[in-house]
Amino acid sequence: MNTENFNNKEEEILKALAKLEKVEPTEELEEKIYNRLDPRILLQWFSFSKGGTLGMALVIVLSLVFVVTESYQRISYIYDYKEGKEAVFQEESTVIPASEDTRSLLKIDKISRFSPKVKKDSVKVKSSP
């Protein structure tokens, strides 16, 4: 486009403005928009859409089921422990016995995993004055 004479002629400026070349965005613009929107689409889906509501409800139900079963298991463990069934846990645990060589190396005869013995002499109890 060649330059035009704009001396005191508003019309010419208006024509030139209207004729200004269109600046086109790059092809990647749309791609960038959608890439930025991807996580939002998921959020929107969960928040608003009908399917999203069902999905959200499903997630809540599954979470509740998980919490309930987990709580039940914990309660039953405590109950079993009180009833004297704690031995069950010890039987189920897989403790690999140390070999004779290892025992001799460590100079131990027994592996006392759950009940470390405490020497009575080592415990000092302060008596109040």
């Binding site: 600046v23 613009l29 930025r36």
Partner: peptide, 24 residues
């Protein structure tokens, strides 16, 4: 709307990269 908006923003800012960010 991408092209009309791009033109509007570009004519205002005069910076292609910045314009792209604003349109996005």
């Amino acid at each position: 709307f991408k092209s009309p908006l791009f033109n509007f923003v570009y004519r205002f800012l005069g910076d292609y990269e910045l314009c792209s960010d604003v349109v996005q």
